[in-house]
Design a protein around this nucleic acid. Structure first.
Lengths: 187, 187
DNA sequence: CAAAGATATGAACATTTATTCATAAATATT
DNA sequence: AATATTTATGAATAAATGTTCATATCTTTG
């Protein structure tokens, strides 16, 4: 059935990007990884560029921070913890996505319409931190620095878990990393 | 003169990687960017793979660990500060390096020996942190978590400065970010 | 300043990889 | 169950890109 095959193509592409980067992606290996003939890819996508852009849009759509509206009445620390925990889980689970998204955006395959970046998460964090500063809970430090600490730490740690721990993310790791983060930014 | 041409090749490669990623790197465009004929590249490197690996080694050699031996007698906090300041300056100055290094390491062009060098900075940090823990200066938290905070923060912040501040890195930013980092990890 | 040596050029050639399409297999329709 | 329609295949072809090499241009040396 059609949807199934589309997903097989997308999964194959993601997996391969993790292994050989966008530089190493061949239509033939995508087909092989997805257990189908090379020609079949062209029934679903006009060409390689369209395939990659389609995957990009799919990933973007899925990464919408749906959680935000449900929790933004909670205290800052709790909000941050929930955000941290969820993001870390997602990132580890989907570390391949990060690799794909980062590489794709500076590859020769990006279409113009893809070029909008997700400043969304950053903006959510900024608002949260500003609120925290007003409530005297967060250090009075340039929000951009705080945001870099949070996002940078998050990404680097998730990549480490993904690579060196084979994706095994314990509650202890989540809590330990979060309290490190929280202590760094709290007043 | 020979060295000058080598540098032109390396610079061209870095610049192009920032624009089109490793996926978009063509020998012909490297040559064009470096204002020389395509064939000339092959006087300096046997092939594309060797060119990219040579650049990788050069970047590794130039990065923070070169400093290590000069400072490893100093107190932990000072060592960390010097490392932080240098790394941040270098990363901002040449954010392109990050892009190259990250993409290169999962491209089809990596040679086996390149893979080893990657762990070096991480190992230096690990030793430093272990020493700090013994001296009761650093939090007793899994070093991998601490390392992720440091490296992740560093990279993310440098990218932010590079992109949003057009590379303008003030002493104040360095100090502010470092003390945030230090406070996060110190006991 | 001529000849030898070193370095550089870029069009020609080789290789790799994207894309097409004649043919086959699967599925739906009567 | 025969026929039409849709979907899949992978070898053949086209396109893109890496690499070579005969020729040209600089540099050095006697």
């Amino acid at each position: 059935m059609k949807l199934d095959k589309l997903n097989r193509i997308f999964n194959a592409t993601l997996n391969l990007t993790g292994k050989v980067g966008i530089a190493g992606l061949k239509m033939s290996s995508i087909a092989k990884e997805a257990s189908m003939a090379t020609g079949t890819l062209y029934l679903y996508f006009k060409n390689k560029k369209e395939l990659l852009n389609a995957l990009y849009f799919k990933l973007q759509k899925e990464s919408a921070p749906a959680l935000i509206s449900e929790i933004n009445h909670l205290p800052i620390e709790i909000q941050l913890y929930k955000m941290w925990s969820l993001a870390l889980k997602r990132l580890v689970e989907n570390n391949l996505r990060i690799i794909f998204l980062e590489q794709f955006l500076i590859s020769p395959y990006v279409s113009e319409s893809s070029k909008e970046m997700d400043a969304r998460f950053r903006n959510y964090l900024r608002d949260l931190l500003d609120k925290g500063k007003k409530e005297n809970q967060i250090k009075d430090v340039d929000s951009n620095i705080l945001i870099s600490l949070i996002i940078g730490f998050l990404r680097n740690f998730s990549t480490y878990i993904f690579k060196d721990k084979e994706g095994e993310l314990s509650e202890k790791s989540i809590d330990e990393s979060f309290s490190l983060c929280w202590e760094a930014i709290k007043k």
